[in-house]
């Protein structure tokens, strides 16, 4: 009789992962047609499906996050529905474009922001209690900017995708979905 297989330490945290396909299905229910992005490490599983070309969503790859926001602004001006997928560091880098297009110009930007760098010991806890500045600054910064946010901390939070999307339409401004852990494969 062989000994029962031990679950890998990394897999123990998979309950905090939301499957990539479930996210794409939610995007489609929202009517999202385009993704503009600078790829995010915790959303690699999502990026791989999007880049595979069979999701039905068109991806615009940008070299900086301010471009991702601006391309999204141009797509919106042309009548398209867009998600901007970035990581927390990239969001910080793109704030002036968010200020100009999302806040001053009232363009309904829907951000999907990955919490790069979050220590696994913080999973299941408040990300504001993270030891990492790159993680714990995100929500207070969004509040300072007046950008409402929703957390995606596990499969139970999937309805928050549509809630964050709809709020961006209702307020004609930016909203953020915060992806707390690696997207599931």
């Amino acid at each position: 009789m062989s000994a029962p297989e031990k679950e890998s330490p990394m897999k123990q945290f998979s309950k905090y992962s939301v499957p990539a396909q479930a996210m794409i299905d939610a995007f489609k229910r929202c009517g999202i047609e385009y993704v503009t992005t600078v790829p995010d490490m915790v959303q690699i599983a999502l990026h791989q499906i999007l880049d595979g070309g069979e999701s039905g969503l068109r991806v615009v790859h940008c070299t900086t996050e301010d471009q991702a926001i601006e391309v999204a602004g141009g797509l919106y001006a042309g009548g398209k529905k867009v998600a901007v997928i970035v990581q927390n560091q990239g969001f910080y880098a793109g704030i002036n474009s968010l200020r100009a297009l999302g806040l001053d110009s009232k363009v309904p930007l829907f951000f999907v922001i990955g919490q790069f760098g979050r220590e696994f010991s913080n999973l299941g806890s408040d990300p504001r209690d993270s030891k990492r500045r790159v993680v714990f600054l995100l929500e207070p910064l969004l509040e300072t900017l007046g950008v409402p946010s929703w957390r995606l901390e596990g499969p139970d939070d999937l309805p928050n995708i549509e809630a964050a999307w709809q709020a961006s339409r209702d307020r004609s401004g930016p909203t953020a979905l915060i992806v707390g852990h690696f997207v599931g494969w």
């Binding site: 385009y34 503009t36 068109r58 615009v60 940008c62 301010d66 471009q67 601006e70 391309v71 999204a72 602004g73 141009g74 797509l75 919106y76 001006a77 042309g78 009548g79 398209k80 867009v82 002036n96 474009s97 100009a100 297009l101």
Partner: peptide, 22 residues
């Protein structure tokens, strides 16, 4: 026509979004 203002640097990327949309 639209002005990219005040957002120095953003015009080409906004144009890219419009070009893809139309």
């Amino acid at each position: 026509a639209m002005a990219c203002v005040p957002l120095m640097g953003g015009a080409a990327s906004i144009g890219l979004g419009l070009a893809l949309a139309w």
